[in-house]
Design a protein around this nucleic acid. Structure first.
Lengths: 266, 266
DNA sequence: TCAAAAGTGTTAAATGTACACCCATGC
DNA sequence: GCATGGGTGTACATTTAACACTTTTGA
């Protein structure tokens, strides 16, 4: 994935080093700013969504961008990311993780700015749009993200890849659903994310067998006649089981076999 | 893994926001420095090793630390990490990836410094120790890392965890071995990293079945009477196969079963 | 010849996949 | 009743783990 240096000609250039002594390198006093950008995902019936804002200040005022902000003097980048997310959505306690530091000296036309990108998963319904009027925020489909400023599209692509990677190994996608959800709902989410179809019976058993879910009394009668049971995460098992989830897509396969898709009834 | 914000009481505090308009926040002109630290792993018969240096300047002169440096005006953090690694080891084209940004405002007693930590895997034998005389570098066992400055021990722990995680899913550990290696050698590496034993026959077949290795004519007669064939990576398949390797340890398991260890003959 | 490690073969258990089929309900 | 999606059962295929066995060769 994020290999910085290629493995080629490993031992190629073992140049003789100038005998310069170890010393703290000196750099020009050029100011470097540290910022955070949040790649915020949500999910609705249409599919995976990305939350973007209309930039309210120069440079690039009026254009679409990720929500971001500078890291304050008394903040870590995590603090800043949590603050920025809260400013936009009003939400707290959200799943968030470091994605990648973007630090090319050319990336921002203005001052030199390094950006720590975070990706976050929220329940789209818990987000109150009126809170972000100031930011002119909107949800855009994650499959067709419009042109954003700077390198923000690159960040989004990386975040989507990371999400697909992690969600195949860890029970991450629950973060995109409301507290109570049905297994068919979850299946749609997986199917959208991986652009594939799963056999409903097998999907059901696979999810149940994780032991991470608690079945509730109620059924969701909106989407089918029979109705599907609502489930909730078993918080305790969720924490434990985070690292021992199931491979949905990135299955370890020894031979270069074609990835089989589960059948689906038409 | 690196959850920044816990999932608890998600929708708890949706406070009413002060209606302040979107604007570029203003921060004090306090200078922020961006640095990189390299967590460099090697492997020898003893086990996994970490390369540390004796710090040659204040603060904390004379104490052990990771090799690091500031990100220059014309560099990205990747550039800086590659440069720093090269300064210390003379090596190029090394496997390296972003680990985590450490940016607590309290982490460095001196100036406010955010550090992007990178971890790197090198073939310990290709490293020429004389190159790093200036840095007074030394290899320490990764299982008993001495006290390092600042938050460097925390970085090392995170890097070890990441290495174990990734190596279970991707063919990463070859980076720690010389060009030509034997499968029993590789097995020892896996066994040390995961502090476990694998059945030699099954290990052999598992590795061979990846199709990532090319068998050479020669055998390594040093470690056994029969001698084990040397292998090389099939570069092409290595690139392709990076994302479809095998789960050695972090096996997806649905029930909370005890992790079984393969038997080993005594 | 014997011990020891490398490598192969075989089997049983665990897991995954396909798909038949039952269930509950609104129409 | 019957169509529809939810959910269960089952059979077969694949993968994995355990371990017996063969190979090679230095001592």
């Amino acid at each position: 994935m994020e290999k910085v240096a290629k493995i080629a000609e490993k031992k190629a250039a073992q140049k003789q080093m100038s005998g310069e002594k170890q010393s703290k390198r000196k750099y020009s006093g050029k100011k470097l700013l540290l910022a955070v950008d949040c790649i915020i995902f949500g999910f609705d019936e249409q599919g995976l969504k990305l939350l973007v804002i209309k930039r309210g200040f120069e440079p690039c005022m009026g254009r679409l961008s990720l929500m971001g902000g500078f890291v304050g003097d008394t903040e870590s980048s995590e603090d800043a990311a949590i603050r920025v997310l809260h400013e936009l959505t009003g939400l707290e306690g959200i799943y968030m993780e470091q994605l990648h530091l973007f630090s090319s000296p050319l990336r921002d036309p203005g001052a030199r700015t390094a950006v720590m990108a975070y990706f976050a998963l929220i329940d789209i319904k818990s987000y109150q749009s009126q809170m972000s009027d100031d930011f002119q925020a909107r949800w855009v489909p994650a499959e067709e993200v419009p042109k954003l400023i700077f390198d923000h599209n690159e960040m989004v692509e990386m975040a989507k890849e990371r999400l697909r990677y992690k969600a195949a190994l860890h029970p991450l996608l629950f973060e995109l659903l409301p507290d109570k959800f049905t297994i068919p709902q979850l299946q749609i989410l997986y199917e959208k994310l991986y652009d594939t179809k799963f056999d409903p019976g097998n999907f059901f058993k696979k999810i149940r067998s994780t032991g991470l879910l608690v079945r509730l009394k109620e059924r969701d009668k909106l989407n089918s006649k029979k109705g599907a049971y609502f489930y909730q995460l078993d918080k305790e098992k969720y924490e434990e089981g985070f690292n021992t989830f199931l491979n949905f897509v990135y299955k370890p396969r020894f031979k270069n076999k074609v990835q089989k898709k589960s059948s689906v009834k038409k």
